[in-house]
């Protein structure tokens, strides 16, 4: 028996940890990428903010994005709920609110992770030194916690809400990453296929821990192959289709195989993706494809909320 409130908490705790670890991945890879640029003029920090979807908020607070303010915004900012520091703190607070549900070992890990990133930095020098380390630690801890979830929690409804949150969040973030790569990094079609383009695709793969796998299985970088891998692959745990199918599986387990509204929406989405090739996606237009995808994921979020958490109240969703 799982309380709706607890289900909601598990779902969001999982999402916040996944979100923080994705942001850490993006931050780390961008930092590397920008270090490879020959001049500071070529550094690109705006895309990182675009991924979050909170550019407006950013500009109001910081103005034009540059290395320092983007790092501060994404890693430390205590007022921004999607900064790594805030996300981990929220996850910790949620965990404290359901001590009775979270296995003790896992709680201790989430508790420590929530305190890992300081909420503010006094010296600029500090975060240059620490940002790398922190990104790696956050990423590794998130993997550790996720491993604990799969090793320690019985496969009941609670576990599946954790998995549902994790994979929906991941699908969403992977799609945003792709979106940003396609439309903000290379605004000119003429740039496609240049060495810079290759470098960026390669960075994108790296941020998903996919580069080695890609080179081993597909060889040279081509946009079609990268899209195949990131969107349509069924075997890689960060590809969008894999994430969505995993989420769908958890939904069925939560309801003991009974299909409900969220199942139907999500199943339709998976079917649509399974019928597509990378070429279809490029022909359709990446922008349109990702907009539709994100709309569908939002519908799933809303349906989950209405089905399990707040049966009568209609909410804005995620």
């Amino acid at each position: 028996m799982l309380l709706s409130r607890v289900a909601d908490n598990i779902f969001w705790m999982s999402r916040y940890i996944e979100r923080a670890s994705n942001t850490a991945r993006f931050l780390e890879v961008s930092y590397h990428l920008n270090l490879d640029q020959q001049s500071r003029d070529e550094e690109q920090w705006a895309p990182l903010v675009e991924i979050t979807g909170d550019m407006k908020l950013f500009k109001a607070r910081y103005g034009q994005p540059n290395r320092d303010n983007v790092m501060h915004f994404l890693m430390f900012n205590p007022e921004y709920p999607n900064s790594i520091a805030s996300g981990l703190r929220i996850a910790r607070t949620i965990a404290k609110g359901m001590r009775e549900t979270v296995p003790s070992e896992m709680f201790e890990r989430i508790n420590a992770l929530g305190k890992l990133v300081p909420s503010a930095t006094k010296e600029k020098a500090f975060f240059h030194k620490r940002v790398f380390e922190l990104c790696r630690e956050v990423k590794q801890e998130a993997i550790m916690i996720s491993g604990m979830a799969s090793e320690l929690i019985e496969r009941g409804q609670g576990y599946h809400f954790w998995r549902l949150g994790q994979f929906l969040e991941r699908a969403d973030k992977t799609s945003r990453l792709l979106h940003v790569k396609y439309f903000y990094l290379l605004p000119h079609l003429t740039d496609v296929g240049t060495p810079l383009d290759d470098l960026q695709w390669s960075a994108l793969l790296e941020s998903l821990d996919l580069k080695e796998t890609y080179i081993r299985t597909k060889g040279l970088i081509t946009p079609e192959n990268v899209i195949e891998m990131i969107v349509l692959d069924r075997g890689f745990p960060r590809s969008i289709l894999f994430c969505l199918k995993t989420a769908l599986d958890s939904l069925y387990r939560i309801t003991h195989d009974k299909p409900e509204q969220p199942h139907e929406i999500l199943a339709d989405l998976c079917d649509a993706l399974e019928g597509m090739s990378p070429k279809d996606i490029i022909d359709k237009g990446m922008n349109e494809f990702i907009d539709e995808l994100q709309l569908s994921i939002n519908e799933v979020n809303n349906a989950i909320h209405i089905q399990f958490i707040s049966p009568k109240a209609v909410t804005a969703g995620a």
């Binding site: 028996m1 799982l2 309380l3 709706s4 409130r5 289900a7 359901m98 001590r99 009775e100 549900t101 409804q157 809400f161 939560i254 399990f308 958490i309």
Partner: peptide, 26 residues
């Protein structure tokens, strides 16, 4: 946790006219 009881807050509960019930995902 130690007793294996549900931990509920007021808003998790509802009176259905006869019983006090918890709102669960099922």
């Amino acid at each position: 946790q130690q007793m294996g009881a549900l931990l509920v807050e007021g808003h998790d509960l509802v009176y259905d006219g006869k019983y006090i019930c918890a709102r669960t995902v099922g």
